[in-house]
Amino acid sequence: MRFPRNLEVWKMGIVNYLDALKLQEKLVSARKVHKIPDTLLSLQHPPTYTLGKRRTDHNLLVHESDLQNMGAELHYTQRGGDITFHGSHQAILYPIISLRDIGLGARNYVEKLESTMIELASLYGVTACAGGKCETGVWVGDRKIGAIGVRISHAITSHGLAFNIDPDLNYFKHIVPCGIADKEVTSLRKETNMVLPAEEIIQEQLISCFARQFGYDSVSLKEGTSVLSADGDIE
């Protein structure tokens, strides 16, 4: 008999990238010793470019000082994947979950992240699919609508996925997104003729798609950053 599995979701709003990174590190440490259950961070970032552990700086097409003039930050991370952009009107999920507990390998995990975004797009009549060889993420034709970059340490995940609802796509012109040249980046707004609901609703739908794809029986919600105590410990 399988025991019911609950996913704890933290709805964080707009969070600075470094603050989110530090939070993930705390949560990963806590998840490794079973101090917390599987946890999902749902948030957005202010304009931010991030590079993965391969350090493919050549895919940044402007000088870092130019990014600062645009009000954007640049951060180096230990996740997989290449350079990408995060900004307003982009739904981000950072799962801190135990792959060992749910019986998934790394490849299956990434495939379920892809399926999460594909399912969300389908709700709006958009046919998306996983990329081919060396084309990570989720695509609508040859246009990328969702990015994936993950880190797995002792079977505990961090980082995750970013789905473009309606970000300013001009920011992507300053990079080779995910290291794939001559491909466009798109958004749900650009790909559908529908009037989209409030962004918060789409983010909640993405959370529901994630919970279904990963087989969680229930979802519990926490709002904002009040989930951290004053000294930064996890409550």
Rank of each mutant, 00 (worst) to 15 (best):
I152K: 02
Q203E: 12
E199H: 11
L161P: 07
S115R: 15
A106F: 02
P95N: 05
G179N: 14
K173S: 15
V138D: 04
F172L: 11
T192F: 05
K112V: 01
S115H: 13
T127K: 11
I152M: 02
Q205D: 15
K190C: 03
G179P: 13
A162S: 12
L104H: 07
P167G: 06
G149Q: 03
S153N: 10
C178V: 09
D101C: 00
R151K: 14
I96P: 04
A162T: 10
I152W: 01
K144Q: 04
C129S: 11
F163A: 08
G137M: 05
G103C: 07
I102Y: 05
D101K: 14
K173F: 08
I156R: 05
T136R: 11
H154V: 03
V138A: 09
V126T: 09
K190I: 14
T186D: 09
E135N: 10
E111N: 14
M117P: 03
I96F: 01
V110L: 07
P197N: 09
V185M: 12
G125A: 09
E204P: 01
G132C: 01
G137V: 01
T186V: 15
C129N: 11
S153F: 00
G179I: 10
A162D: 08
I202M: 15
V138L: 03
T116Y: 01
L188P: 08
D182W: 04
G132N: 06
K112W: 00
Y171R: 10
Y124F: 15
L99D: 02
V110D: 06
E204N: 14
A121R: 00
K133T: 13
K183C: 10
V140S: 04
A162I: 08
S158K: 00
L104I: 00
I102M: 13
E199V: 15
T127F: 10
V185P: 06
A181D: 15
H159Q: 15
V126S: 04
G132W: 02
P177Q: 11
G146F: 04
E200L: 12
